[in-house]
Structure formats: C-alpha cells, structure tokens
C-alpha cells in the first residue's frame, strides 16, 4: 500500500487528520509520504506544531481531546517518523514565507511539486487535507 498525502492547512484538526491516517497506514506496512505546503508547513514547524490553533468556536473540544487521551501532535509526529513516514516540505512555500530547513522538525526533506507528483503517480491512495 502506497499512500500520498498533501497537508495544506495548519490547524490542530488538520494535523490530527493528517498524522492519524499517516501513522495508521505506516503501521499497516504502508509506504507513506506527506507533502506539506502553505499553512500545512505549520504542522512540522519546530515551534508552531506544538501549539496549533483549534478552529474558531471549537476550543471547548480541548477537554474532549484530553479526556479521550488522544496523543499530542508532537507525539504523533515522532511516531509517524519512527514508523518511516516521509515528510517533505514545499520549497516554494518555504521561500515565500522565508523559512529554511532548520525551522522544521528534524528528519524532513525539501522538494517541489514535481517531487510529490513523481511519488504520487503510482500511489494506491492520495489524500488532501
């Protein structure tokens, strides 16, 4: 199973959608690559990923997340990388936002649209969040 994911949004809910699917796929021996672009870069930004915003009006779900013992985003990132999920940051967005590879969590790669397309062309599952 080969899974290609585009992460283009930067909220806490977006992060859960992306990393839950990615870790589940990797745990089922899937090959997984996530392409982070535009606000999606927040999900792997060294500082930003630790305090991603909840969508407006849903702040009260915070308690639900804690009660259900949902893993934190930093934990999910570590787990995903541990299971071999590949993180690719979009070079073009980084240039626009003035970010460099050092601004992100360790172990990421940097690439462009063609990099992602080349990976995704024979993927069994392609997802965009």
């Amino acid at each position: 199973m080969k899974v290609a994911i585009i992460a283009a949004n930067g909220g806490a809910f977006d992060a859960y959608k992306v990393f839950n699917i990615a870790t589940a796929a990797a745990a089922a021996d899937g090959e997984v690559e996530i392409f982070f672009t535009f606000e999606g870069l927040n999900l792997i930004h060294k500082e930003a990923h630790k305090q991603l915003p909840m969508p407006e009006g849903t702040e009260h779900f915070k308690e639900g997340f804690e009660k259900a013992n949902v893993p934190s985003i930093p934990e999910l990132i570590e787990m995903a990388q541990d299971l071999g999920v590949k993180f690719v940051a979009c070079q073009m967005t980084m240039d626009v936002m003035g970010l460099s590879k050092e601004d992100f969590v360790d172990g990421i790669e940097v690439g462009g649209a063609a990099t992602f397309l080349n990976y995704a062309k024979d993927a069994d599952i392609s997802l965009t969040f």
Binding site: N20, T23, A24, A27, A28, D29, A68, N69, V70, P71, M79, L83
Partner: peptide, 13 residues
C-alpha cells in the same frame, strides 16, 4: 487500553 486511534494499531504493529 485507554488509548485512541491510531495507537492500538501502532502498538500492535
């Protein structure tokens, strides 16, 4: 036990 998706699968793996 006490853990949510995707943890049971990750732990199993």
């Amino acid at each position: 036990s006490g853990l949510t998706c995707p943890m049971p699968i990750v732990k199993t793996k």
